[in-house]
Design a protein around this nucleic acid. Sequence first.
DNA 1: TTGAAAGCGCTAACAT
DNA 2: ATGTTAGCGCTTTCAA
Lengths: 349, 349
Amino acid sequence: MPHHGRSRQGMTDPVHKSRVTSFDVAEKAGVNQSTVSRALKGDPAITEKTRTRIQLVAQQLGYRVDDRAARLRGGKTGTIAVIVIARSGVDFTEINPFHYNLLGSVCAAAAARGYQALVSFQSEPESYYSDYIESRQADSLIILGTSTNDAAWQFHRPLLDRNDVSSWGSPFGDHRRIASDNLTGGRLAAERLLQGGYHDLVFIGGVDDRQTQFRDRYTGFCNALANVGKSAGTPVDAAGSTRVEQGRNAVDDLIASGRTFDGLFCCCDAMALGALQALAKAEIRVPEQVGVIGFDGLTSGAHASPPLTTIEPDFKLAGTMLVDAALAGDGTNTDGRIPVHIVERASVS
Amino acid sequence: MPHHGRSRQGMTDPVHKSRVTSFDVAEKAGVNQSTVSRALKGDPAITEKTRTRIQLVAQQLGYRVDDRAARLRGGKTGTIAVIVIARSGVDFTEINPFHYNLLGSVCAAAAARGYQALVSFQSEPESYYSDYIESRQADSLIILGTSTNDAAWQFHRPLLDRNDVSSWGSPFGDHRRIASDNLTGGRLAAERLLQGGYHDLVFIGGVDDRQTQFRDRYTGFCNALANVGKSAGTPVDAAGSTRVEQGRNAVDDLIASGRTFDGLFCCCDAMALGALQALAKAEIRVPEQVGVIGFDGLTSGAHASPPLTTIEPDFKLAGTMLVDAALAGDGTNTDGRIPVHIVERASVS
DNA sequence: TTGAAAGCGCTAACAT
DNA sequence: ATGTTAGCGCTTTCAA
C-alpha cells in the first residue's frame, strides 16, 4: 500500500503517472519516504546496503530531489542574486567589458561557495527590481556596474547598507563597498610614468563626488607626484556619451589648450582608448612623445595601437570578496580593497 | 484564534517571531489565509475592499510572498538556467566578449519573458553540471560558448536534442541549434572585399568538422566568389593557444608562403585582430595594400589599428531566439539563423 | 465572495 | 538504523 494520507490524485491510477517523488522511490524500495531522503543526502545513519538499494531504485525511476522543495523547509535558497547595472539605452555589446569580467568572477566565486547565481541586467527603469531576498529567490545580493547610471543606483541605494548585500561601483561614498585599491593604482601609474622618463603628467577623467573610484585614483596619482616634489595639475575631463568619447574629447581639449604634457594617466581604459585616438589624430606618437596608462585591464587595450599599458585589479579576488561580503551577513570583511598590478604593454617607454 | 493545526512553535510565543507568513497577515486582517493568497495575486473574486485591507496589513508586517513556496505547487520554477562554456584554464578577462554579449542578451530576453536567469560558467570539468531541470532549479536550459572546449560540450551533448534546451556554439552538427546566418555572413564579407577593389582573397581560419560555424562562413565566402567566377583557394589556419595567436600565426605563415593576396576574411574577430598584428609586423598597410574583414562585432575591433570592419550578428535577436527555443518545449522555431550585417570601420577601402 | 482543508515534495524532530 | 509525524509557506479544489 502506498504512503497514506498523502497520496496524490493519480497515485493509485497508473495511467496518471505525474512526476516521480521520493514516495514512489520509497514504495518501490520498500522503505519509508524519510529513509529515501536520508539515504540520498548521505546521512551516515543509513546502512550502505539500504542506501545502495535506494539509489538504484531512484535511478531506475529517474528520480531527482526537488531542490526547491528540499530547501523550503530550511529557509535558505542556496542562490545569490547578482544585479548588473549598465548605462541606460546601450545594448549588450556596449556594456563595459570590465563589468562582464566582474560578473564572471562573481559567478565563479558563488559556485565555489556552493551557491547558484541568479543574474539580471538592470539598466532601464522598467527592469529595476531588488526584492530577491524578500521573495526568497536568493539569500544575498550583489550589485555591480557603472557609476554613471545614477537612477539605477538611486533605486538600489537603500540596499547598499544591508549586510546581506555587497556592491561594486556605486556612485555613493557613504556605505560599505568592495573596490579596487584605487589609491595604490593611481600611485603605480604615476611612478611608472616617471620611471619611463615622462615629467609633465596629467590626469584624464572626472573627479567629482559621484566618481569616488576615479577620485581615489587621482589622489593616489597626486600623492606619488607630491612625493617627488611634483604637482599633478588640474585633471582634464570632457563630456561625451561614452567613456571612449569622453577620453577623446578630453585629450582634444588638452591639446587645443596648449598646456604642455608628456604623460597621461587615464582614469579608465575606455577613456585611455579614446585618448589614444585623439593622440593619433594629432599625430603625437605614443610612447615616444607621450606615455599613456589606463586602468581596468580591458582586453581591448591589448589590441589598441600601441597596446595600452594599464593598471588591472585582481578579478578573481574581486569576485570572491563580493561573494564573501554578501554571504557573511554579519558585516565581516565587507569593505574591501582589491589589489591591483600594472600590466606592461607598449604605451609607456 | 490563529490558524489551527498549522501553528509554528513560536506562533503563540511573541518572543520567537520568525519570519512573517501569509498566516500572520491573515490573522491580523481577520481573514483566512487563502484569502490573503488570492488577494495578493490579484484574484478578481476578492473584493477591492478586502484586498486593500490585506495589502495594507501585508505592508505593515513587511510580508512578501515566498516565491519558491508559491511555485512549489505549480511545478514551474520561472527560471531558466544558462551555462556558459569558455576555454579551460582561462580566467574571466580572457573569455571571448562575444559570449558575454550573448549572455547579456539571453538574460534580457529571459527577463522579458518573465523568467529569471540562473547562470553558471563551466569551463573546467569539476564545474560541469547540467541537472538544473531534473532538480527543478529551472524549467529550461540554454548552453552557449566556445566550440573549442570539446570536453565540456561532450559532457552536455546528450542535452542538446531536448526540446527544453537550446544552444549556441556546439562543435557538433547533428542537432538543433541557434547560430548566426554564417552563410550570408561569408557572402557579405566576400562581396564587400571585392567591392573594395581587392581580388586575391583568402580565408583565414579552420574549416574542419568541429568548426561548423567557420565552415559555413567559408562556404558562403566561396559561393560569393564562385558567383563572379573566382575561387577562394585554400583556407589558411595555424595552431595557437588563443584565437588571436592563431590568426597571427596563420597570417605569418601566409606571408612566408609567398602566396599572393590582397584581401583577408578572418573567420572571427579574434583571429582578425591577430591577423592585423601580423600584417603590421610585416609592414603591410591595411586597408591600402590588404583589406581585412572579421566576424563577431567585437568592441576590441573598434579600437584596433585600423578599426576592424566586421560582420556582426543581431545579438538582441539571438538572445530572444535562444530563450524562445528553450521555452517552447515543443520543438517550435528551435533551429534558427540570426541575421547578420556588416559593420563598416576602416580595414577595407 | 470567502472559509476549510488538502496537498506541492521534501526535511527534520521525535519515536522506536 | 529506520519509521512516524509534523511541518516549510503557499495554491487550489471543494464547500458554504
